[in-house]
């Protein structure tokens, strides 16, 4: 479970203060995927950083069942060391996340298999193509089997096929519905078309505030995109 209450955070001081988060509250249960749409500078990345514990908010609280150990983060950057192999990277991060030594090898193999990278496991990261590197980054984020996935513009730089593949994977990881417990997914993007299929809940963020926050229900992507356009352009 991921629960936040009354988050507020600003940057700068005096008259130059920028409000990045303003009274954001929500609770997500496993199996729920929240897609946050907002223009650049709306505070989406700040929100994710607060959820991940990178920024301590000035007000409000964050509760994640399982703490830092439960969080998987996929951002603009892969966090991989270019001169280590994919497997070495995975083992390193597994160790930091407290995966027991005996479980690290099998777990890495499992994640690599799931992402179709088993035959590239022993290649250094610098030798991978962009798409493969992105997959390796996802493998890194999943290595400790996180129950909360935080994604910051994960589709940036992916071609259509790769983006579709990632969406399918994320849908599978979210799970839920079919009896399985599933995971909490929070996805931030400025492009409605990219994330909406996956979402169970939709929020529009603007000037640090959720101007719209509701279950997706049966709404079509086109309808949500239209609502988003109106929410972002009016007043």
């Amino acid at each position: 479970m991921l629960s936040v209450e009354g988050l507020r955070h600003t940057f700068g001081e005096g008259g130059g203060q920028v409000v990045a988060l303003d009274g954001v509250s929500f609770t997500l249960m496993p199996g729920q995927a929240l897609a946050i749409f907002g223009p650049n500078g709306a505070g989406k990345t700040t929100l994710l950083k607060v959820l991940a514990g990178l920024i301590r908010p000035q007000a409000g609280s964050v509760q994640v069942t399982g703490g830092r150990r439960a969080i998987g983060w996929i951002g603009h950057q892969s966090h991989l060391y270019e001169h280590l192999t994919v497997r070495e990277n995975l083992l390193f991060w597994a160790s930091l996340y407290g995966v027991p030594a005996a479980r690290r090898g099998p777990r890495a193999a499992e994640v690599l298999g799931r992402l179709g990278m088993r035959d590239r496991a022993d290649r250094p990261v610098w030798s991978l193509s962009r798409g493969l590197a992105q997959r390796a980054a996802i493998a890194k984020a999943l290595i400790h089997d996180p129950s909360v996935l935080l994604l910051d513009e994960p589709f940036t730089g992916l071609d259509l096929a790769a983006a579709a593949e990632l969406r399918a994977l994320l849908g599978e990881l979210r799970g839920g519905g079919g009896g399985a417990a599933g995971r909490v997914v929070v996805l931030a993007t400025h492009n409605v078309d990219e994330g909406v299929e996956l979402a169970t809940d939709v929020a529009f963020q603007r000037h640090g505030r959720f101007v719209h926050f509701a279950p997706r229900g049966g709404r079509e992507p086109a309808g949500i995109a239209e609502a988003y356009r109106r929410a972002v352009t009016d007043g």
Partner: peptide, 11 residues
């Protein structure tokens, strides 16, 4: 690749 950010997100 901003590995430092990754270290700081981790426990």
């Amino acid at each position: 690749n901003q590995a430092l950010e990754g270290l700081l997100v981790s426990p």
